[in-house]
């Protein structure tokens, strides 16, 4: 049986990827609220996903406030879809 992608097989990273698969972009505050994680932990996991090329992180300004926006890349989409396919085999779905 094929192994599940270890980068995605973690609670918070999988949650982030699941959210980003469903929206065009989400900011840091939104991800923090939806995943109920801490800012520090979320930041670390975003860095890991970004380094793997699964998400793109843009830091910018919205009006006068700083805003970090995340969106999934095509590589991230492929990895997520593959993860779900492998997961199905594990669960006999």
């Amino acid at each position: 049986m094929k192994e599940l992608n270890p980068l995605l097989h973690s609670q918070l990273r999988l949650a982030i990827m699941s959210i980003l698969m469903n929206v065009e972009e989400a900011d840091f505050v939104y991800l923090k609220e939806k995943t109920e994680s801490t800012a520090g932990n979320l930041s670390v996991q975003l860095d890991k996903l970004s380094s793997a090329g699964y998400i793109s992180v843009e830091k910018g300004m919205l009006g006068k406030r700083p805003r970090t926006t995340c969106s999934i890349t095509s590589e991230g989409q492929r990895a997520f879809e593959e993860y779900v396919e492998v997961l199905k085999t594990y669960l006999n779905l």
Binding site: H9, S10, A15, I19, N22, L91
Partner: peptide
């Protein structure tokens, strides 16, 4: 939510729960 390994069943739960949250 933390950075911890999941069982396959938990993975499925995380995915469905996050999809539900973004579908609001």
């Amino acid at each position: 939510m933390e950075d911890r390994k999941l069982t396959e069943k938990e993975s499925l739960e995380v995915i469905t729960s996050m999809i539900a949250r973004t579908k609001e």
